[in-house]
């Protein structure tokens, strides 16, 4: 079960976890990760997230299906928002379910590493000092090597 959603609207991580868990069959472990808008400069008023409609959904589905196969997951959810978000808001979440926790944890880390640098999203920070695109980090690319 792969459930990928790209949306502008906010979501409730708790409700998503409940609904995901209720749909599972014979899973012993669920791991979730939520990403929040962080303000490193202390001056950010909002974060703008741009994406590539069509490719985004396809890229996320491909990554989620790969995780499902590789760790024999009972289910995967990926939700990623776009548009204007304020500090502290949820940007995205992943949930993975497996028979045992090791697979669920690993699959969640794999999903996060891949969607950071392989899903077509771009973040821009808007603040008192102006707008700035968030640059990709070399460490994000290097994180893919372990998979």
């Amino acid at each position: 079960m792969v459930d990928v959603r790209v949306q502008e609207a906010a979501f409730q991580a708790g409700a998503e976890l409940e609904a995901f868990s209720a749909r599972l069959q014979n899973a012993g472990a669920v791991v979730t990760f939520s990403g929040l808008v962080r303000d490193d400069s202390g001056q950010m008023t909002e974060m703008l997230i741009e994406h590539y409609p069509g490719m985004t959904e396809a890229a996320l589905t491909k990554i989620a299906e790969e995780a499902e196969d590789r760790w024999s997951l009972a289910g995967v959810v990926v939700i990623h928002r776009h548009g204007a978000l304020r500090v502290g808001e949820q940007i995205m979440m992943v949930a993975t379910a497996a028979r045992h926790r090791g697979h669920a944890f690993e699959a969640a880390e794999f999903l996060m590493d891949y969607l950071k640098s392989r899903a077509p999203f771009w973040k821009k920070e808007r603040g008192a000092a102006g707008d700035a695109w968030v640059a990709a980090k070399d460490a994000d690319e290097a994180a893919l090597d372990r998979w």
Binding site: M92, S117, A136
Partner: peptide, 10 residues
């Protein structure tokens, strides 16, 4: 064809 900077999802 699409051109863009390195992606920054997550």
């Amino acid at each position: 064809v699409a051109f863009f900077p390195p992606m920054t999802g997550g």
